[in-house]
Design a protein around this nucleic acid. Structure first.
Lengths: 154, 154
DNA sequence: ACGTTCCTGTTGAACGCTCAACTATCGGGG
DNA sequence: CCCCGATAGTTGAGCGTTCAACAGGAACGT
């Protein structure tokens, strides 16, 4: 009863697989080389930098970066070692922890951002027509609607 | 001089980021749960199963799965422990090694494939119109042309 | 023949992620 | 008030990946 993929679908699937992996690896490697951090850590810093007072509850941060609580916990532990993030107790919920972006963390992020954005542009948007970029967004949103229906759009 | 992303581009980029990660995580988790292997190992088995005599040089296998030699070496070591793959010396190049899919490995793959294909269909193709699937292919190929120009198309 | 350079594949350490187990707190119902 | 299930976050072990270093063989020029 398996609904196998057509030849056409299989080619599409493999192209997508290789392309997204290649893009991912490239950006991750650039970030590691230029800023000394993996992309997952960069994303944490970005989300914190956009939050009010540059701080977020661990859970909210986990959701924003689509990462598990455990992963975030490990990641923040390391970011704390680097001095880029610091933990604070949540005043309204004694179970809670706040992750706070330090000034040093902000500096590191500010230094890393231009290179990374340039990478995203070079490796993704420069390769697509404006129509294709719009299509990619629709496609991504369709996938998200299915895989993660509750997620905040932005 | 940084060419920052427009609001529109940023939304596209984040949607793509979350969507491809969600798809990836979902499929990887399903495969781990149902077949006891990560997607990377599944891909290795697939490529071997399609090769003549179900064997490939390590380098060729690394390229086909877009993985580093080191990664493949570790992976094959583990697949060998499971009894799904076996190594043979290459007859024409004494540096070379051949990875060979065992009968048991083939059985495991045959058992895992229907579930995984169903996952790809459910989580990807069922969510896209035929036009969107075609667009996704073009988009992926444009990315590949840039990131990995020499790669075999299939 | 010889040496240099490239290529093939492996190794071990460091790192990040997953999973399951655990502690501590919150919040609602008897 | 107390209990109980749900929630917040952490921890450690196991696993896969990366990276740099390495050994051995091939290919090429001289």
């Amino acid at each position: 009863m398996t609904r196998w993929l057509s030849e056409e679908e299989q080619r599409t699937w493999r192209a997508f697989l290789h392309a997204s992996r290649a893009l991912w690896d490239t950006l991750d490697r650039e970030l590691q080389r230029d800023a000394g951090m993996p992309h997952a850590y960069y994303e944490i810093l970005v989300r914190l930098s956009e939050a009010p007072s540059r701080m977020l509850r661990m859970s909210d941060l986990a959701e924003a970066t689509s990462s598990s609580r455990s992963r975030l916990s490990h990641a923040v532990a390391r970011l704390e070692e680097y001095g880029w993030v610091r933990r604070e107790d949540c005043p309204t919920d004694r179970r809670g922890q706040l992750a706070v972006l330090t000034d040093q963390g902000f500096e590191v992020l500010a230094a890393a951002a231009p290179g990374h954005v340039e990478g995203v542009r070079t490796h993704l948007f420069d390769q697509l027509s404006p129509e294709q970029a719009a299509q990619l967004r629709k496609i991504s949103e369709a996938m998200l609607d299915h895989l993660d229906p509750g997620r905040a759009l932005y």
